[in-house]
Amino acid sequence: MTLQFSARLADRDVDVDLNLASGETLALLGPNGAGKSTVLGVLAGLIRPDSGRATLAEDTLFDLPTTWLAPHRRAIALLAQDALLFPHLTVRRNVEFAPRSSGATRAQAGAKADEWLERTGVRPLAERRPGGLSGGQAQRVAIARALAAEPELILLDEPLASLDVAVAGELRGMLAEVLVGRTAIVVTHDALDAYLLADRVAVLHRGRVVEEGPTREVLTHPRHPFTAELTGLSLLTGVRTAGGLVTDDGLALGGTPAVPIPAGRAVTAVVRPSAVMLRTGVGPDGGAGIAAVVTALEPRDDLVRVRTDRLTALVPAAVVAELRLTIGARVTLSVPRGDVRIAPA
């Protein structure tokens, strides 16, 4: 492993262990206050934990209480939401600053700056000053500066959060290219960032890693409510039955697990909102399906996420209008058996 990290901070209630292989990108997900930025701060040397140990390649970053490597001696680059470019330097000089700080000659730094300005798509802006850049351009320059230092590890703290959707999409594509083969940790609240940028995902909740694994595996079959919410899936917990499962609140659903699970065992089930079918009202005796009450309506372009006290459905806006759905409306839901993905808890 390139990175082995373990740190505990009592005042922030953070206790995290992480490992990262060389050339691997890890997406660090979690709600606000979960400890994501704290982990990056400790790695960068800006926050000192109470105890722990971290190594990066052959270097010991810290081994408390005795060893603490200063931030400038760590082969780590930290990129925050704010580009933090030097306002008095041109774009090119900003990027040259990183290799120069590592001991490169002016010629070497210039060549490295030109390489990364080209790779991040801002070479034509080389002689501008930061005050004349858009938010997206400034973030590209900040990424070029970080990578020009050739760090062993690059930390990105929600690098796309402050950008509009179109610019964020362009920058996400660029990051996907330049991070290939590089060891990185990306803090994000966006499942798309994780899908496109990360090999693995770690989910933090209340200062602890609550689930971790390959990106697609974690995000398509989440085990924690935050992960399910992030990916827009409904996460259910319950007990395996012969035909599917019974949830903790008594809802019976049909479904077949990917691996054999004996009846009576605790399980989780994931349901995609797009697989949930919805109609208004209930039959005279409850009817076939799941009786539910609408709790929220969330427009998503030409679709609407219909949240209920049972499951969430994703339907065309025209269907919401046709059914005259409102908060508090009684509806009946149904889910095809094949769309209920069951796994051991």
Rank of each mutant, 00 (worst) to 15 (best):
G135N: 13
E158A: 02
G136E: 14
P159T: 04
I143N: 03
Q108P: 06
A146W: 04
S134V: 01
A149P: 03
S134N: 04
R119S: 10
Q137L: 12
R123A: 13
V122N: 12
L153E: 05
L155K: 10
R140A: 09
W116Q: 08
G135K: 14
W116N: 10
L125M: 05
G121P: 01
L153H: 04
R129K: 15
D157R: 00
Q108S: 11
R145Q: 11
R128A: 08
A142S: 05
D114R: 14
L155A: 10
E118D: 15
A146S: 13
A149H: 10
T120M: 09
R119N: 10
A138W: 13
R145A: 12
L125Y: 01
P159S: 04
S134F: 01
D114I: 08
A142R: 01
E158K: 03
A113C: 12
D114V: 09
Q137V: 10
A109E: 09
A113D: 11
A149W: 07
E118I: 06
E127R: 15
V141T: 08
Q137G: 11
A149K: 10
V141L: 09
I154Y: 12
R123F: 03
A148R: 04
L153G: 06
G110M: 13
L156C: 00
V122H: 12
G135S: 14
A148W: 02
A142C: 02
S134Y: 01
V141M: 09
W116E: 07
E127N: 15
R123C: 00
W116H: 10
R128T: 09
I143R: 03
L147W: 05
P130I: 04
L147S: 05
Q108L: 10
A109Q: 09
A138Y: 13
A149M: 08
S134T: 02
P151E: 08
L160N: 00
A111C: 14
P159V: 01
T120W: 00
E152L: 15
R129W: 11
I143V: 15
G132K: 03
A149V: 06
V122R: 13
G132E: 03
A138K: 14
L160V: 01
D157C: 02
P130R: 03
E115A: 11
A126H: 08
P130L: 00
E115Y: 13
E150Q: 15
T120D: 00
P130C: 06
E127L: 14
I143M: 13
Q108H: 07
P124H: 01
I143D: 04
G121A: 07
K112E: 15
V141S: 08
L155E: 04
A148M: 07
A149S: 14
L156M: 09
G131R: 09
P159L: 02
Q137K: 12
A144C: 15
E115M: 12
L125G: 01
R128I: 05
L160I: 00
L117W: 08
E118Y: 10
L156I: 01
L155W: 07
A109M: 08
R140K: 10
L147D: 06
L125K: 02
A109T: 08
P159E: 01
R140T: 07
A142Y: 01
A126R: 11
I154N: 13
L133A: 06
A149G: 13
G132A: 07
R140I: 08
Q108R: 11
L153M: 05
K112S: 14
R140P: 07
G121R: 07
A146Y: 07
E127V: 06
Q137A: 11
Q108N: 06
A142Q: 05
